[in-house]
């Protein structure tokens, strides 16, 4: 699996959740104009969830591309559908990261790019956003140690 491919045929698994910039992708959230709270995924109800805010206007905002690794794990077994399935023997465990974005003050989960296992991760290290392909070829966001060769 090539974990940073964003060829012209590659489609995201969800439209509008992240940019398709192969080198510097960004998650796309939205931001309450009144209180500044950022939402990812984008808030669609049209009403800010901050209980002390009556905001009803939101603007799209790309999220920070990097943050500190808050915690991590892996999927040692193939997750059930809708995770795109491969033959049991072909499944390779993949790491999962929870990354704390400083500016947005939020933690975002994602798979870690192929080839980076939990033994290469350490809480606190800087992670950056990349794109990677799911087994059905659809692109998703993935986390990678900052500066690592993909």
């Amino acid at each position: 699996m090539n974990d940073t491919v964003a060829g012209c045929n590659a489609q995201p698994f969800l439209e509008g959740w992240f940019t398709l910039d192969a080198e510097r992708p960004q998650l796309l959230g939205n931001r309450c104009v009144a209180c500044g709270t950022v939402y990812f995924p984008k808030l669609k109800s049209g009403y800010c969830r901050n209980p002390d805010c009556d905001g009803e206007r939101f603007e799209e905002t790309p999220l920070s591309r990097s943050g500190a690794l808050w915690s991590y794990s892996n999927a040692a077994y193939q997750p059930p559908e809708p995770y795109a399935q491969v033959d049991k023997d072909a499944f390779r465990p993949f790491a999962i990261a929870a990354v704390e974005l400083d500016k947005e003050k939020m933690i975002v989960l994602g798979a870690v790019v192929a080839g980076v296992g939990v033994e290469q991760l350490k809480v606190g290290m800087t992670m950056e956003l990349k794109l990677g392909a799911l087994a059905d070829g659809k692109l998703t966001w993935m986390w990678a140690p900052a500066g690592a060769q993909a």
Binding site: S71, S73, P79, P80, L109
Partner: peptide, 25 residues
Amino acid sequence: PDWVRFRIGITNPTYFALYARRRMA
């Protein structure tokens, strides 16, 4: 959100594991 997280491979044990690893750190 339940569909999205399974779509990218995040199962129930993932969450418990993230909390556990955080305790270790």
